[in-house]
Amino acid sequence: MSGEAQLIDALRKGDEEAFRELVREYQPSLVRIARIYVPTQAAAEDVAAETWLGVLKGLDRFEGRSSLRTWIFRILTNIAKTRAVRDGRTLPFSAMQEPGRVPEAAVDADRFLDPEHPRWPGHWAVKPEAWPEDALLAAETRERLAEAIEALPATQRAVISLRDIEGWSSEEVRNALDLSETNQRVLLHRARSKVRAALESYLQEDTA
C-alpha cells in the first residue's frame, strides 16, 4: 500500500493522529488559496474548516483516481467559489486566466536610461546594489517581506506563497489554481518582482 493509501485507510478507521497530521500539513495552503476567493482571513479560515468537513464526508467515496491533495483542493475551491457567488463577489477568474493583458513592469522605467539612448539604450540608470548579508537575515527584513507578499493582489499572492513559501512545484500550483503554464509564470514573475522592489527600498533606506 502506498503512503497515501495507508493514510486514507487510517483516516477511514478513525485514526485521530492521522487526521491531525493531515490538517497541520494542509491548513496553511488551504487558507491561502481560500483568500483568493474571500475577502478576509477569518472568512478564509471558515472556508478551510468547511473543507475539512467536506473531506470527512467524502472520504468513503474517495477512490484515489486523483491524488489526495488534488482532491482536497478541489473541495476547497468549490466551497470558496460557492461562497464568493453567494456573497455577490466577483470571481477572480478573468484576472487568473489573462494576467498578461495588463502589462506591468518588473522594475520602474525610471530606473533605466531611455530606450533611445545613443550609447546605452535601456541600460540601468540606477543600478541595483548587492544587499548587505546581515541586514538581509534580520528578523525585521523577514517582516517586510511578509508584508510585501500580503500586499500583493490575491492571485499573485497565492502563487508566490505556494511556490516560494511552501515550496510547491509549478505543476502543483497550476493544478490547484487551474492556471496555464504561462499564466502561472506571469503571476510568479510579477509577485517576485514587486517583493524584490519592496525589499530593495527597505534595505536601501536602511543603509542610506
Partner: peptide
C-alpha cells in the same frame, strides 16, 4: 535572495 528568504517564512500555523 528574495526567493530564498520567502522559503524561510513560516508557512503559517494552525
Amino acid at each position: 535572495q528574495t526567493v530564498a528568504l520567502s522559503g524561510r517564512l513560516s508557512a503559517g500555523v494552525l
